[in-house]
Design a protein around this nucleic acid. Structure first.
Lengths: 330, 330
DNA sequence: GCACGTTACACAAACGTTTGCAATGCTGAT
DNA sequence: ATCAGCATTGCAAACGTTTGTGTAACGTGC
C-alpha cells in the first residue's frame, strides 16, 4: 500500500535507481542537491522501505535470529541482552522465535520460519535439536551457533560454560567449606551438559576420597519440581549437609522442599545453585551460586556467527557468587 | 545459493508456475502425477522456499510480530505462550523483538525492523511508545494491538486487565480480612495503568471510611528495588498491617525488606502481590496475589489483530489467588 | 463431426528493490 | 578544438515467487 521508491522518484523527478542510492546513502553517487530532494520526497510520502524486495536482490539481510527452546528458562534473558547489545554494534537486528519445549514439530516450525527468509545467522539458545532438524539447519547454509549447550556426539559450533568445571567447582566449593555429604539435585543425564556436570561432581568427590552414594545424584530436568522431588527423595533425616541445585530453579525447589521438611537453610542444609540468575537474590536466604556469564555467551555468539573463526567451540567463564545459603562446617 | 522453483521446474520438466502451484498445494490445478514429480524433485534438490520473494508478490506474510519492552518483565512469558498457541491455530508464525526499556531509539529500531517487512500484525507487550513512534506505528497500516497496558489519552486498541478493579479488589481483599492500614508499594503514577490502580485503591479505602495517609502510597516502577524502597519508607514500626505490591517483583521487594526490618510475614505484615506469576510460588511465604490472566491476553491479542472488530479495547479477567502471605485480623 | 466443458499445463507480468553499465555534461589539460 | 577524466544520473536486468490468462488436449453428448 505504502509509497515505493518509484513514487519518490516521480515526485523528486529522478530515477528509481538514484533514489535507491540516496536512501542507502551511497555517498559519491549523487549530488547534495539531489539527496535533499529525494529525502524530502521520501519524508513527504511517508516512505517505508520494503525489506522483502531488498533482501530478494541482495540475498542477505541484517537480521539475526535467536531460537529459544522455551519461554520458561529464566536465563534466556541475559543471553538475549548480550545478543542485542553486540548485534546493535554491528548494526544488526534481532528477532526471537520460540521452539517450544523439546517438541520436534515446533522446532521444525521455528527453524523454517527463520530459514525461509534470508536471515544473516542463527543462534540457538539451549535448544537440543532432533536429528532431522539439525540436518535441516545445516543444509540451510546459514551460519549458526548453539548457546548454553554442548555436544560430544556431533561437531557443531557452540558457546557454553565448561560444564565439567561447573560441576567440579561447585563440589569443590562445598568441600572446602567442610561438607562431605553433598547431593546433586535435578540434573539431566540424557544430554552432554548434564553428564559433564555429574562427571565434574564425581571427580571432585573422588579426589576428596568420598564415596558417592547412588541416591546423592538425583536426576531431573533442572526444573523447580525436579529440585523439590530431589529434596523429597533425600528426606528430612538425610546424611547430606549440602545440596547442589542443577539450576537456580532446581535449587529453589530444594530450598522450599527442605523448609517443608523442617530443615533450616543454611543451618541444617547448605545449598549451592548453578546459574546465578536474578532469582538467587529473590529468595530467602539468597542462594549462593556458581554463576554463568550468560550475557557474555550472547555477545560471543554474535561474534562467532559474524566472523566464524577456526575454533568454533568456546567457553565462557564461571564464577562463585557467595550469598547466604552455604554454611561453613567445622 | 539454494535451489529455486525454476531448478525444480527444469528437473521435473514442468513450468515454474506449476511448481509453485504444487508446492502451495493449490489442488485442482495439477494432476496427481505432476504433483509427485514436482515434490520428488523439490526433495531431491533440498528446496527451501524464499519467503522474501513470495511476500513481495503476495504482499502479506504469515508472521505476526510481538514487541516486548524488556527482557526483564517476567509476565511476558505467559503472554507470549498465549500468542504462540493462538497464532499456531491460525497457522501464523510469531517473531519477537525487544524494544529495550523506555528507550525511544530502541523502540524505533524495533518498530522499523517489523514494519519494513510485511508482517501480518503487531502486538505490543506493555510497551509505552513515544509520540513519534506511535505515529510511525499507525502510519504503517499494519493491524496492531497493545497488550497489558492501557491508555486514556489516545484511542488505540488494547487488551489488559481492568486496572481500576485490580486496585479496588486488592484493597477489598485486605479490608475483608480485617486490615485497615493498607499500603500500596511500587506503583507508577505516570501512566494510565498505575493511576487506575491507585484510583481503585483509594475508592475502596474511602468506601471503608479510611483516610489514606500520603506515605501509604509509595510510587515506583514496579521493580524489586521499588518494593524494597517502599518498605524501607514504611519502616519497621509502620502503622500498616498490610501492603499491596504493585507487581510480583515489587511484592517480593517488600517481603525481603520487611524481613530485613525484622517483620514476620504474614504475622506482622500481610502482603498481597499484583500479577500472580510463578514467582509468587517461589518465595517463602508464597505470595497471595491478584492474578492477571496473561495467557488469555496473548490469545485475545492475536484474535484482535486477526479479525479486528468494533470493540477494540478489551478486558481480561482477574482473580484472587490465596497463598500464604495474608493474615486474617480479628 | 461439431460445439462445448474440463483438465492440465505453459507463459508472462508483476511485486519493489539493487546495481552494473551506459550516457550525459562538465572541467581542465593538451 | 579535442579528449581524458570525473561526477552525476538514467536504464534495465535481476532476485524468486505468485497468479491471471491463454491454450492445447481430451472427452462428452448431440
Amino acid at each position: 500500500m505504502g509509497a515505493t521508491i518509484k513514487d519518490i522518484a516521480k515526485l523528486a523527478g529522478v530515477s528509481p535507481g538514484t533514489v535507491s542510492r540516496v536512501l542507502a546513502n551511497k555517498t559519491g553517487f549523487f549530488s547534495a542537491q539531489t539527496g535533499e530532494k529525494v529525502r524530502a520526497a521520501a519524508k513527504e510520502l511517508g516512505y517505508q522501505k520494503n525489506t522483502a524486495a531488498a533482501e530478494l536482490v541482495t540475498r542477505q539481510s541484517n537480521v539475526i535470529a535467536a531460537i529459544v527452546n522455551s519461554t520458561k528458562t529464566n536465563f534466556a534473558s541475559p543471553i538475549i541482552e548480550g545478543i542485542q547489545a553486540e548485534a546493535h554494534l554491528h548494526d544488526l537486528n534481532v528477532i526471537i522465535v520460540y521452539a517450544g519445549d523439546d517438541d520436534p514439530e515446533q522446532q521444525r516450525r521455528a527453524l523454517t520460519t527463520v530459514i525461509e527468509r534470508p536471515v544473516r545467522s542463527i543462534l540457538l539458545l539451549s535448544v537440543d535439536l532432533s536429528a532431522d532438524n539439525l540436518q535441516l539447519l545445516q543444509s540451510a547454509q546459514i551460519p549458526f551457533c548453539f548457546l548454553s549447550i554442548s555436544f560430544d556426539d556431533i561437531q557443531v559450533p557452540y558457546i557454553t560454560s565448561d560444564d565439567w568445571q561447573v560441576g567440579y567447582q561447585a563440589t569443590q566449593t562445598l568441600l572446602q567449606r567442610g561438607h562431605r555429604g553433598i547431593g546433586l539435585a535435578g540434573v539431566d543425564s540424557d544430554f552432554h551438559t548434564g553428564r559433564q556436570r555429574v562427571s565434574g561432581y564425581r571427580q571432585a568427590m573422588q579426589e576428596a576420597g568420598i564415596r558417592v552414594q547412588p541416591a546423592w545424584v538425583q536426576l531431573g530436568d533442572y526444573s523447580y519440581a525436579a529440585g523439590q522431588q530431589a529434596m523429597q527423595a533425600y528426606g528430612a533425616d538425610t546424611a547430606l549437609t549440602a545440596v547442589i541445585g542443577a539450576s537456580d530453579m532446581a535449587a529453589v525447589g530444594v530450598l522450599n522442599q527442605a523448609r517443608s521438611l523442617g530443615l533450616q537453610v543454611p543451618t541444617d542444609l547448605s545449598i549451592l545453585a548453578i546459574d546465578g540468575t536474578t532469582i538467587c537474590d529473590l529468595v530467602q536466604p539468597a542462594l549462593s551460586s556458581i554463576s554463568q556469564n550468560f550475557y557474555e555467551m550472547g555477545v560471543a555468539g554474535v561474534r562467532q556467527v559474524s566472523a566464524p573463526d577456526d575454533t568454533s567451540q568456546k567457553i565462557t567463564p564461571i564464577k562463585l557468587v557467595e550469598r547466604q545459603s552455604i554454611r561453613r562446617l567445622k
